[in-house]
Design a protein around this nucleic acid. Structure first.
Length: 831
RNA sequence: GCCGGGGUGGCGGAACGGCAGACGCGCUCGACUCAAAAUCGAGUGUCGCAAGACGUGCGGGUUCGAAUCCCGCCCCCGGCACCA
C-alpha cells in the first residue's frame, strides 16, 4: 500500500470503471423508434430530474463550467443515494455564431469546428467525474434535433403563435443579424453576445407571440425560484393598468388618435398631446405651415436612433403640428405635438401630456413654454402655488370638474367607470414585453421551415419534408450576408401548394429556440417519430431541480416558460411550468476578485489543476469557497486545504486500526465520537437539501479532525469503523473517485454510489450532558455542565451557585433570571 | 431614480434573537528529520502580564440578550430605466 493517495492514477482508473458499467447498463434501443428505451423510473421509486444548463461548445471547459456543474452533480448523486431514480442529462448548445465566424476566418466548416469542440469538451467533462447520463446526450445542430425545432415552429405557426411582420427591429452590425429585445442590454443598447451597440432597422422578420402569454407569465406562485429572477421577469414583462381613450383632431374631425394613461385622474391637467414621430396620423394632421418643420424633425428622429447614442442625457424635444385635439371631457382644444420621447412601440404611440404631474411632460412644457395646470394637490405644497416640478404622487384632485375634491385613487376609479359607461374610454392593460424576434440572418442555426410563394404567400413546409437541412456546401465569405441567401439549391424551390417557383426562407432561428424545449428532448433523445416520447415525458417531467447562471433570467428562462405554456395549449404537455425549482449559482472570480478574463491574466485553467491535484480536490475546493449562489475568488493556495483534507480521509480508510480494540483510556471518548458522527450525518444531510455545500464540507472536515483526535487518543474498533464508513458515504457525492477507492479499501461491496445514504439516530444527536452558557446582564461569565434532563429551576440554581457568577453579582440580588433550556441562563441584576 | 442582494479577523467564509469568528487558507511555535519536504500536535479578532475591556459598515431603537428584528444613513455588486 502506498503511503499517499495518488489521484492521477486512481481517478483515471475509476472513471474507466464507471464508463464500462454505464456501457453495460445501456439499454437496447426500441424498434418502434420511441427511443426512450428502458430508461423510465422504476416502479415504487421516486423520480428526480436534475438539470444543469447545457454548455456552448466553445472548445474549452473553463472553471466556470466546473463551478456550475459540480455542485449540480453532487446534488444529483445525493438524491440517487437517497433512493431516487435520477436522470442528469448533458448535451451541447451547438448552434451559434462562433462556429460560423471560425468558418469565415479560417475556412473550417461550422459543423466540423463544432463537432471537434464537442469531442474535446466531452473528454474534459468526463474528467470532472460527474454522473452525467451520456446516453441521453443531445447536440442541437444535429438535424435529428433541429427538425423538431422546425416541427414545433410549424405548430406555433398553425396556432398563430409564429408570424412574420415588417417592423423596426434591433440589428447588431458586428454579428450581422437582428436580435431579440431580450438580447439588447442596458441603456447603451449593446448586443448581448458581443457588446456592440445595436441599430434600428425596418425589416420583415419572424416573431413568436410570447405576448399572448404576458399575463400568465406573471403568475409565478408555483415557482420556487430566486426572488431576483422573478423580479427581473416581472419588470421585463412590465404590466401596467390604465385607460385608453381617443382624441378627435379639431381641424380634421375625421382623424382621431388613441392614448393610454395610467393616470386618468390627471386628465383635467392635459395641456397638450404628443404623437410619436412615426405615428401614421402625423402627416395627415400637420398644418401646411408646419410641414417643413415636422418633416425635418421626423428625419432627425429617424437618424437619432442610430447615431448619437452616447448623448445619454436625453433631451425631450419635439415640434408643433399646427393641429389641435379636443379634450374629451372639457371640449377645450389642446395643441398636438410630435416628440421622440413618445415611442410608437409602446401603448398607442401617442400620449396625453400632463406636465404638472409627469416629469417628462413637465420638462417638455418648460422647454416649449406650454401651460402647466395643476390638478392634483400635493399634501405638502401650498395651495395655488405654481408647480416648480412635476408632482407625480397621490393627492386631492383640484380644478377637475365634477371630480374636484376626490382623492386621486378614488378619482381614478370613478373616471374609469364613468368613461367606460359613457363609451368614451376603456380599461386597458399594457405590457412592456414584446414578441420574441427569432429571425437570424445567419447560416449556423435552424432553418425556418417556410417557403415564400409569390402567389400563395408564406407556405409551411410539410411535416413529411422535415428536417429542412442546412446545405453543407455553403460559401462562408466575410460579406456579412447569410450564405443561405446565395445558395441557389437551398433557396430556389417550388411552392408546396401551387408548384410555382418560390423562395425558401433563408433566416434561421435564434439559438434560444433550441434550449426553450430541450428538457423534453433529453427524455427520449433518439425518438424518431416525435419531438419527445409522451410516456417518458409523463414519467420524468417536470424538471425537479434546474441550476444555472442568472444571466438567462429574461432570456432562456422566460422563453422556456413560454414554450411550455404554448406546447400545453397545442396539446403536447399537461405542464404549466417546465422547471418549478431553480437555483442560480454565483460566479467564480480570479485570484484578485475580478472577473476572469484573458486580458486580466487571471484565468484559472481547470485542466492544469486537475493534472496536479486531481478532480476531487478541485470539486471539493470549488464547493468549499463559499455559498454556491455567492461565487467568489479562486485562491490558488486554498486548493491545498482540499488536497490535505482528501489525503487525511484516505489515510483513515487505508490505515485506521479498527481491528484493534479500543484502548481503555479512549473508552470514555467512544460515545462522544458516535454522537459526533450522527450529528455530522444530520448536518450534512440538511446542508445538501438546501445547497449548503460549503458548510457540508466544513462539517466533514470537522468529523475527520475529531476522528484523528480519537484515534490518537487510543480509540479504534467498531465505532471507528462505523464512523469512517459513514464518512466515506457522506463524502461520496463530493469526491466520487476517492470515495470509490476508500470504499474498496474498507472492503465494501459494490459501488459506493449505490449504497444508501447514512441514517442518523435523533436520540444520539441530543446528548445527555449539555454545556449551559451563563450570562450576567447579557455578558458571558461562565459555562456549566449539566445533565440535559435537569429541570429548569435546578439549572438556574446551579448557575447561581457558580463562583464566577457570585463574583460578578458582588452580593447584588438577581432581579430576573432567564433560562433557555439546554442553552443558556441569563441573570439580570440592577446595580 | 426604481427594484434585488451584500458589508463579520490578514484572506475565503460560519453562526433557529442566546458562547461572534465553525471549517479552511496564511502565519507562529513544537514533535519527527543530519536537514528539508510531507505529516502530526499546540496557538492565532484587537488591546492587556493578567483580571478584563472592546469588537460584525455608521447612527439610533426594540429586547433580559441583536451580526441576526425595526428606523435613518454610507458604501459595494447585480438588474431595470423616456414604458405614458
Amino acid at each position: 500500500m502506498p503511503d499517499r493517495y495518488d489521484p492521477r492514477t486512481v481517478e483515471a482508473r475509476w472513471r474507466q470503471v464507471w464508463r464500462e458499467r454505464a456501457e453495460a447498463a445501456r439499454g437496447v434501443p426500441e424498434a418502434d423508434g420511441r427511443g426512450s428505451g428502458d430508461r423510465l423510473p422504476r416502479p415504487g421509486r421516486r423520480k428526480h430530474y436534475a438539470l444543469t444548463m447545457f454548455p456552448y461548445p466553445s472548445g474549452d471547459l473553463h472553471i466556470g463550467h466546473w463551478y456550475a456543474m459540480v455542485p449540480a452533480d453532487v446534488h444529483a448523486r445525493y438524491h440517487r443515494m437517497r433512493g431516487a431514480d435520477v436522470i442528469f442529462p448533458i448535451g451541447f448548445d451547438a448552434f451559434g455564431l462562433p462556429a460560423e465566424n471560425a468558418a469565415i476566418k479560417r475556412g473550417i466548416h461550422p459543423h466540423r469546428w463544432t463537432m471537434a469542440n464537442i469531442e474535446r469538451m466531452r473528454d474534459q467533462l468526463r474528467t470532472m467525474g460527474a454522473a452525467f447520463d451520456w446516453d441521453r446526450e443531445i447536440v442541437t445542430c444535429d438535424p435529428e434535433y433541429y427538425r423538431w425545432n422546425q416541427w414545433l415552429f410549424l405548430r406555433f405557426f398553425e396556432k398563430g403563435l409564429a408570424y412574420k411582420k415588417f417592423a423596426p427591429v434591433d440589428f447588431c452590425p458586428n454579428c450581422n443579424t437582428t436580435v431579440a429585445r431580450e438580447q439588447v442590454v442596458g441603456p447603451d443598447r449593446l448586443c448581448e453576445r458581443c457588446d456592440t451597440p445595436v441599430v434600428r432597422r425596418d425589416l420583415d422578420q419572424w416573431f413568436l407571440r410570447i405576448t399572448a402569454y404576458a399575463e400568465e407569465l406573471l403568475h409565478m406562485d408555483g415557482l420556487d425560484w430566486p426572488e431576483r429572477v422573478l423580479t427581473m421577469q416581472r419588470n421585463w414583462i412590465g404590466r401596467s393598468e390604465g385607460v385608453e381613450f381617443s382624441f378627435t383632431v379639431r381641424e380634421r374631425p375625421e382623424c382621431r388618435f388613441d392614448v393610454f394613461t395610467t393616470r386618468i385622474d390627471t386628465i383635467y391637467g392635459v395641456s397638450f398631446c404628443v404623437l410619436a414621430p412615426e405615428h401614421p396620423l402625423v402627416d395627415r394632421i400637420t398644418a401646411p405651415a408646419h410641414r417643413h418643420a415636422v418633416a425635418a424633425y421626423k428625419e432627425q428622429a429617424a437618424r437619432r436612433s442610430e447615431i448619437d447614442r452616447l448623448a445619454a442625457e436625453r433631451e425631450r424635444t419635439g415640434v408643433f403640428t399646427g393641429a389641435h385635439a379636443v379634450h374629451p371631457l372639457t371640449g377645450e382644444p389642446v395643441p398636438v405635438w410630435i416628440g421622440d420621447y413618445v415611442l410608437l412601440t409602446y401603448g398607442t404611440g401617442a400620449i396625453m401630456a400632463v406636465p404638472a404631474h409627469d416629469e417628462r411632460d413637465f420638462e417638455f412644457a418648460r422647454r416649449y413654454g406650454l401651460p402647466v395646470p395643476v390638478v392634483i394637490q400635493s399634501p405638502d405644497a401650498a395651495p395655488g402655488a405654481a408647480a416648480a416640478a412635476a408632482y407625480t404622487g397621490a393627492g386631492i384632485m383640484i380644478r377637475s370638474g365634477p371630480y374636484t375634491g376626490l382623492a386621486s385613487e378614488e378619482g381614478r376609479r370613478r373616471l374609469t367607470e364613468d368613461m367606460e359607461a359613457r363609451g368614451i374610454g376603456r380599461r386597458q392593460v399594457n405590457y412592456r414585453l414584446r414578441d420574441w424576434l427569432i429571425s437570424r440572418q445567419r447560416y449556423w442555426g435552424t432553418p425556418i421551415p417556410i417557403i415564400h410563394c409569390p402567389r400563395c404567400g408564406a407556405v409551411p413546409v410539410s411535416d413529411a419534408e422535415l428536417p429542412v437541412r442546412l446545405p453543407e456546401d455553403a460559401q462562408f465569405l466575410p460579406t456579412g450576408e447569410s450564405p443561405l441567401k446565395f445558395h441557389a439549391g437551398f433557396r430556389n424551390v417550388p411552392c408546396p401548394r401551387c408548384g410555382a417557383p418560390a423562395a425558401r426562407e433563408t433566416d434561421t432561428m435564434d439559438t434560444f429556440v433550441d434550449s426553450a424545449w430541450y428538457q423534453y428532448r433529453y427524455l427520449s433523445p433518439h425518438c424518431a417519430v416525435a419531438a419527445f416520447d409522451p410516456v417518458a415525458a409523463a414519467a420524468w417531467l417536470p424538471v425537479d431541480q434546474y441550476t444555472g447562471g442568472v444571466e438567462h433570467a429574461t432570456m432562456h428562462l422566460l422563453y422556456t416558460r413560454f414554450f411550455t405554456k404554448a406546447m400545453r395549449d397545442i396539446g403536447l404537455t399537461p405542464l404549466d411550468e417546465p422547471m418549478p425549482r431553480l437555483f442560480n449559482q454565483g460566479v467564480i472570480l480570479g485570484e484578485n476578485s475580478e472577473k476572469m478574463s484573458k486580458s486580466r491574466g487571471n484565468v484559472v485553467n481547470p485542466d492544469d489543476i486537475v493534472a496536479r491535484h486531481g478532480a476531487d480536490a478541485v470539486r471539493v475546493y470549488l464547493m468549499f469557497i463559499g455559498p454556491w449562489d455567492a461565487g467568489g475568488p479562486w485562491n490558488p493556495q486554498g486548493i491545498e486545504g482540499a488536497v490535505r483534507f482528501l489525503q487525511r480521509v484516505w489515510r483513515l480508510a487505508a490505515t485506521a486500526p479498527w481491528n484493534t480494540p479500543v484502548m481503555p483510556e479512549a473508552a470514555a471518548e467512544t460515545e462522544r465520537v458516535r454522537r459526533l458522527l450522527h450529528r455530522a450525518v444530520a448536518s450534512v444531510t440538511t446542508d445538501l437539501e438546501r445547497f449548503g455545500f460549503n458548510t457540508a464540507i466544513a462539517t466533514l472536515m470537522g468529523l475527520v479532525n475529531d476522528l484523528y483526535a480519537y484515534l490518537a487518543a487510543g480509540g479504534g474498533g467498531a465505532v471507528a469503523h462505523e464512523a469512517i464508513r459513514s464518512l466515506i458515504l457522506l463524502l461520496a457525492p463530493f469526491a466520487p473517485h476517492l470515495a470509490e477507492e476508500c470504499w474498496q479499501l474498507l472492503g465494501g461491496a459494490g459501488a459506493v454510489h449505490d449504497q444508501p445514504w447514512p441514517e442518523y439516530d435523533p436520540a444520539l444527536i441530543a446528548s445527555d450532558a449539555v454545556t449551559i452558557v451563563v450570562q450576567v446582564n447579557g455578558r458571558l461569565r461562565t459555562r456549566i455542565e449539566v445533565a440535559a434532563s435537569l429541570p429548569e429551576d435546578a439549572v438556574q440554581a446551579a448557575a447561581l451557585r457558580s463562583p464566577r457568577v457570585q463574583e460578578a453579582l458582588g452580593g447584588a440580588r438577581p432581579e430576573r433570571v432567564i433560562v433557555v433550556p439546554g442553552r443558556l441562563v441569563n441573570i439580570v441584576v440592577r446595580h
